[in-house]
């Protein structure tokens, strides 16, 4: 039983991180109807931004203010990056086919990975130890082991989800985002500046991915330039599972993927862990292509 609860806890925490990344995919899909392949690399850069702010800029480790500062730094760097990527690579393609944009996104993803892997321009290909951002200790609660890092993950994820909910439902720009994802033409007709909303969406989604990167790195000892690929793909699956374009769906999908993965890791199938997410993806697309919370659409002819 404790074993089960422990796994449940670990799964929820991993799921929370996937949820943060999945939200970025879903938001961008909502406003632009395409899969931002480079999102997983923004996630990776989030982890590296925190690493730089500690290792190179000297933010204190094992301190709550230091950790929060590193987290905020990572989120800001990623937000800016997301906006810049959209501005330079995607905006000129606004009227082009989905595939053109998708391939561009793959190109951007490869570019980020390769620059990051370059010893001269980036961080080099080798993994680096990730510093302990927050004070770390293990707490024992009735047989369960919880690290303070895990608590940080939970707290940060919950706060960010609350903030996101507030932005989307209570602010003008959030309303504009929802309008845009409902109907882009109508949105621009009622005077919404689509470009500004899209920039904002990229910034917001990327900031969440950056936070996800830091939280992910905190629970894994090392970071490297290709670390984004797998979590990114899994988060994407989470977004599709929840119903792409649907924010609560992305959060739910993240949780489901995190839980499934954690429970599978505990079994003999653990080496197939990374294939599980894709199995889920294929199953959803076959049986419920609109996702758990999404609504099917009929193509107009």
């Amino acid at each position: 039983m404790t074993e089960f609860l422990q796994q449940l806890l670990n799964g929820v925490l991993l799921g929370a991180i996937y949820a943060l990344i999945a939200l970025g995919y879903t938001m961008v899909y909502g406003v632009l109807r395409f899969i931002n392949f480079a999102h997983s690399d923004v996630f990776m850069l989030g982890a590296f931004a925190a690493w730089v702010s500690v290792e190179k800029l000297g933010l204190p480790t094992r301190s709550v203010p230091g950790g929060l500062a590193a987290l905020l730094a990572a989120m800001s760097v990623c937000a800016v990056l997301g906006v810049v990527i959209e501005r330079l690579a995607y905006r000129p393609l606004r009227q082009r086919s989905t595939l053109t944009v998708l391939i561009t996104a793959i190109g951007v993803s490869l570019l980020i990975q390769n620059v990051a892997q370059s010893p001269r321009l980036g961080f080099g290909p080798n993994p680096r130890a990730f510093p302990e951002l927050f004070p770390s200790s293990q707490l024992h609660v009735g047989g369960l082991t919880v690290s303070t890092h895990q608590l940080v993950v939970l707290a940060v994820a919950l706060v960010l989800l609350a903030v996101l909910y507030w932005i989307v439902h209570r602010t003008r720009i959030g309303t504009a985002m929802r309008a845009l994802s409902f109907n882009a033409t109508a949105a621009s007709l009622v005077g919404i500046d689509n470009d500004r909303v899209i920039s904002f969406t990229f910034g917001l989604g990327s900031a969440l991915a950056g936070a996800g990167g830091v939280l992910y790195a905190m629970n894994y000892p090392s970071i490297d330039p290709l670390m984004g690929t797998l979590p990114g793909l899994k988060a994407f699956v989470a977004a599709v599972l929840g119903g792409i374009g649907n924010l609560p769906g992305a959060a739910l999908g993240g949780l489901v993927i995190g839980l499934v993965e954690t429970f599978v890791s505990g079994t003999r199938l653990s080496t197939f862990r990374d294939a599980i997410a894709f199995g889920i993806l294929i199953a959803i697309l076959l049986f419920r292509p609109a996702g758990l919370l999404g609504r099917p659409r009929v193509e107009k002819v």
Partner: peptide, 28 residues
């Protein structure tokens, strides 16, 4: 057969997923 109702980027991701599954299986 199963993926063909999907279009564009969805199909891309599913085929990517299948490719990765094949690789993971071979690895194991």
């Amino acid at each position: 057969a199963p993926s063909l109702r999907l279009k564009g980027d969805y199909l891309a991701i599913v085929t990517l997923g299948f490719g990765e599954i094949i690789r993971v299986v071979l690895q194991n």
